[in-house]
Design a protein around this nucleic acid. Structure first.
Length: 686
DNA sequence: CGGGTCCCGAACTCA
DNA sequence: TCGGGACCCG
């Protein structure tokens, strides 16, 4: 491998193999290069001594893991297949898959998604006579997750401390944890916490895993939480060959428990290690980097880094003010069209936003102009009712203890098993101290059920058990097709829809599930099972990539969060307004300005050549048009690298030639007849 | 008792 | 804009 292509700090990060190493990798500093080279170097350095299976590389997303693995195999050949590259959560799941039974969970445990979590919390709240409408279960879930991640036991707090939510959380937490275990499930936090427990409590497991994984590498270290750090410290063993790569300026997941201190205090957690700083940015032109540096400079408590580039100059950052969100979208679509026609490949263009909802107007305009695009994330698909229902069938078939899913589908489609029936059966289950499923299997022996209900319940039980068997032996997609056919799922879905178009959409989503099953089977081959499918679903929220005819390149739309680690020649960062960027406080939490600033920094640094920062004067929110004020971050930009474009305000002085061209290109948008708010905006020079 | 309809309230970033 | 809950009817 050729190390001469690396700059000195990069080289140092690659060849420092023993002991703790913190690599502070600024945006665009060739981080991925360093990581992959380092792993290949490990494999080359002491052949026969360091095997691929001794290396664990942890990434932030599954996508990053897949790409890194591909790169490794490309660089080092098939032997790199043995390197384990995955997310912390996937690693935790893998470890639990082997040894969770030591803690009393079934080996075939399920991973509870957010819907499951909320349902359990709501039920626990109701058990405590807490009205789940006056108190938000999501908030409780957030608090429980925080408590779990900071290592707090599910103990009630002493009286008089905290507010209502603290109180509720401490009442609900123990129930929540018990209910999860009772239905053989773990939540996302458990995927980190339970492996830690296993390594702490069972010396043989500590031995087993620390001997196998002797070289650890963690990417995006700034976004790890306390639980992940604890797990990492254990996995590091006595040798502590831990390489952490990250950038404190890009810590954007503190709402999920990410702890900037993990990177700031790395030396405290892994004393005696080395620190390397990568400060040369290979990605962006000077103007973009200047804008980014100016925004992030205002944050206190940073590891002082001075990012620089030798790509001097570059086009100015365009700060565009628009009358409203629709015009903003129109502008973005128009500019995209222009740049594509000038030869910029569509997949080198990205539209970034703070919240998923901002994508809609842009999508509409792009569709109108026939510009191919893809929306990343926005787990929309698996949030759809029909999809959730089908998934719930899978969950029950795999795990009859999953009462949340069971209750969800027992009467979907309607089969005459109503609330009263299930309530009575629940009472029996509790009275006899057995599971709901056990009671349902002998539903015909209870006399207090509505007439005919017992027989219907039995029929349902037999249906599920029959399909449990069918899935063991048949193809996932084929069996599912048969199941949906037998229960009349499509007909019921169609009947349930309010219009023909919505029925179409719903049926398409059902097809989507079948497609995703088929793809899964293709990928996994014979080891594909319903259980592995469900697990992959919870760990990897990526949507199935749609087949694009002719492999056309597409513009990418995504949140700033999803854009972490990616780069594009052309970036539109939209909605640069107060309350959006920086975003207002979430779920009663105070606004975290420092994090919003980092988020802004991440967004800006995605751009390689040209950056647009757009904002609107009014925006439709909850069906109402509300006035907006420009983001304070815009004021931090150095004037000399910025070109202001106001499509909404009278301009001062004569337009520059560049502006004239700019507006000439915009003329087309006023030709559109009947467009709401059409007509030249005040003072537009066109 | 079960199923359909209507109305009201909330919506943020993700493994 | 959508989903959940209350309410009413068969």
């Amino acid at each position: 491998m050729d190390l001469s292509k690396l700059n000195p700090p990069q080289r140092e990060a690659v060849v420092t193999l023993q002991g703790p190493l913190l690599v502070l990798a600024g945006a665009g500093s060739g981080k991925t290069r360093v990581i992959t080279h380092r792993i290949v170097h490990l494999l080359n350095e002491r052949p026969g001594h360091i095997m691929a299976r001794n290396i664990l590389a942890v990434t932030f997303t599954n996508k990053a893991a897949t790409e890194m693995k591909e790169r490794l195999v490309h660089m080092a050949g098939p032997r790199a297949q043995g390197v384990l590259v995955c997310t912390f959560h996937a690693f935790g799941a893998e470890l639990l898959r082997e040894d969770i039974h030591r803690l009393g969970w079934p080996r075939k445990f399920a991973i509870a998604d957010m819907g499951d979590q909320l349902a359990i919390i709501r039920r626990a709240m109701r058990d405590h006579k807490i009205d789940d409408r006056s108190f938000d279960a999501r908030k409780v879930l957030t608090l429980i997750s925080k408590a779990k991640n900071s290592g707090k036991a599910p103990e009630p707090k002493p009286e008089g401390i905290g507010d209502d939510y603290d109180l509720i959380t401490h009442m609900v937490y123990p129930d929540y944890q018990l209910a999860l275990k009772a239905q053989g499930s773990v939540d996302f936090d458990d995927l980190l916490l339970l492996p830690t427990r296993l390594l702490r409590e069972f010396p043989d497991l500590y031995e087993k895993y620390t001997r196998r994984f002797r070289y650890l590498l963690v990417d995006e270290f700034q976004d790890t939480n306390i639980a992940q750090l604890e797990l990492l410290k254990l996995m590091a063993g006595e040798q502590r060959n831990v390489c952490a790569v990250g950038d404190d300026d890009q810590c954007i997941y503190s709402w999920r428990g990410a702890e900037v201190r993990n990177i700031l205090d790395f030396d405290r957690f892994f004393p005696g290690g080395k620190e390397v700083r990568l400060e040369q940015n290979y990605r962006s032109v000077q103007t973009v980097l200047d804008a980014a540096n100016a925004v992030i400079a205002k944050n206190p408590e940073r590891k002082a880094k001075q990012m620089w580039t030798d790509r001097k100059g570059g086009p100015k950052v365009k700060v565009v003010g628009c009358p409203n969100d629709e015009e903003e979208a129109r502008f973005v679509a128009h500019e995209i069209q222009k740049h594509i026609s000038l030869g910029v490949p569509a997949d080198e263009i990205a539209v970034l936003y703070r919240t998923n909802g901002q994508a809609h107007p842009v999508e509409e305009m792009l569709r109108e102009k026939n510009i191919a695009y893809e929306v990343v994330g926005g787990s929309e698909f698996f949030d759809r009712r029909e999809v959730k229902d089908v998934i719930a069938y899978f969950k029950v078939i795999v795990n009859k203890l999953d009462e949340i899913s069971l209750m969800r589908i027992v009467n979907v489609p309607s089969r005459g098993i109503g609330d009263v029936t299930m309530e009575r059966l629940n009472v029996h289950a509790r009275g006899e101290g057995v599971t709901l499923w056990t009671v349902m299997r002998k539903a015909d022996t209870y006399e207090d059920l509505p007439p005919g209900a017992g027989a219907k319940v039995l029929e349902f039980v037999q249906l599920i058990e029959r399909y449990r068997d069918a899935y063991e032996h048949g193809q996932l997609a084929a069996v599912t097709r048969k199941l949906l056919e037998e229960i009349g799922f499509r007909e019921a879905t169609r009947a349930h829809a309010t219009s023909a178009t919505s029925a179409d959409k719903k049926l398409k989503s059902v097809d989507g599930v079948l497609n995703s099953l088929e793809n899964f089977e293709k990928r996994e081959g014979p080891k594909a099972s319903l259980l592995t499918y469900l697990n992959r679903l919870s760990l990897d929220t990526r949507q199935e990539e749609e087949e694009v005819p002719g492999g056309h390149r597409r513009v990418t739309l995504m949140t700033v969060h999803s854009s972490k680690g990616l780069e594009y020649r052309l970036v539109f960062f939209i909605g640069m307004e107060e309350d959006l960027m920086p975003h207002g406080g979430m779920q009663g939490e105070p606004q975290n300005l420092e994090e919003e600033r980092r988020l802004c920094y991440v967004g800006i640094t995605r751009a390689k050549e040209l950056l647009y920062l757009t904002r609107a004067n009014t925006r439709v929110k909850r069906g109402k048009e509300v006035p907006r004020t420009p983001s304070r971050f815009l004021e931090d930009l150095p004037p000399e690298v910025v070109e202001k474009v106001d499509l909404d305000a009278p301009r001062q002085g004569p337009p520059t030639t560049e502006e004239k061209n700019f507006f000439a290109n915009l003329k087309e948008r006023f030709k559109k007849p009947g467009a709401p708010g059409a007509g030249p905006p005040r003072g537009a020079a066109g």
